[in-house]
Design a protein around this nucleic acid. Structure first.
Length: 204
DNA sequence: CCACGGATTGGCT
DNA sequence: GCCAATCCGTGGA
């Protein structure tokens, strides 16, 4: 695998758009974290859009609170939340200040730092093929593999620690659009997007 | 392979 | 007090 090209970092303008558009555009892009001098990276394969203005499932639908204030900020930062008493999930905030929109990362295909992700997920470097698929095919699995937690909430994606690299846009005919997973409100909105046929997707 | 339920913190009513 | 944008182990087909 060629090393990540750090010159192709997405800039602020990429994120100042609707969550639905950003979600589709993020598929195929490369999510990168520099951790203790080494690179963890992977291609985004599955996402969901959340839009606080109309979407009861969005954390921002209820108005600003301590928990969701990062999601109300300007696009291009990371919104990390804690759920089910044990899991973190991470989102890319989109749109303008005050809108309360974000894209949940649900699937990533690992590219660099796979042995470190294996240690983060399983406590060992050597894993089976099945375990490799299981590294990052779910939102809380991603944060565990990339060692993302509440200390990363609000980090700027145009900075040098966590960022996203541009890559060829995935054509619409290679993208599946479905209802979102695991929510109990606004369940019928078709705001989940994933790359057809990719193994690193939480559910077909 | 699929279905089910337990784990376990903390945000909001 | 209720219950969550989840994951994993167990048990049965």
């Amino acid at each position: 695998m060629a090393p990540a090209d750090l010159n192709k970092k997405l800039d602020r303008s990429f994120y100042i758009t609707s969550a639905q558009k950003a979600a589709r555009m993020l598929l195929g892009k490369i999510f990168v974290r520099i951790k203790e001098g080494s690179i963890l990276s992977g291609m985004i394969t599955e996402v969901e859009a959340y839009d606080g203005s109309v979407d009861e499932a969005a954390h921002t639908f209820i108005g600003k609170t301590k928990r969701n204030e990062v999601m109300f900020g300007e696009g291009g930062v990371l919104y990390v939340y804690f759920t089910y008493g044990m899991h973190f999930c991470c989102n890319v905030v989109t749109g303008k200040e005050g809108e309360g929109c974000a894209v949940l990362l649900r699937g990533i295909e690992p590219l660099e730092g796979i042995d470190k992700m294996a240690v983060n997920r399983y406590g060992r470097k050597t894993i089976s093929e099945k375990e490799k698929i299981n590294l990052t095919n779910g939102p809380a699995k991603i944060t565990q593999a990339f060692a993302i937690d509440r200390s990363d909430n609000g980090k700027d994606l145009t900075g040098g620690e966590i960022f996203i690299l541009d890559a060829e846009t995935v054509p619409l005919k290679k993208i599946s659009v479905t209802k979102r997973i695991g929510i109990k409100k606004s369940v019928d909105l078709p705001w989940r997007f994933y790359i057809n046929g990719n193994s690193y997707v939480s559910k077909k």
